[in-house]
Amino acid sequence: TVATTEAAGGDEEELQQEQHARSVLRERFLRCLLAMNNKKVRFNMHENVTVEATFGSSDIDVLNFQVSDLHTPIGVQKEALIRSQDVISFTFDA
């Protein structure tokens, strides 16, 4: 039982470290999202498609990005949601 208690203690410590790392990373990421607000962003999507838009925000799961003035090949969409699954990367200048 001593061994199992020690193992449980180790797991607990590991879990705490993991949670701490998670919170540090998430806070930094959220600050980046804040910095992106209202910035002109270029989205690199599948099939070599690149679109530009003004970044609004994302939902908490980072499943969608809310953007304004989305420049598409068939015109400018005033407000839009972009599915993050369709995005490979995006860039902006700070």
Binding site: C32, A35, M36, Q85, V87, T91
Partner: peptide, 10 residues
Amino acid sequence: ASVCVVMGHA
């Protein structure tokens, strides 16, 4: 500063 976000799934 030029910032690039690369999506985890990619």
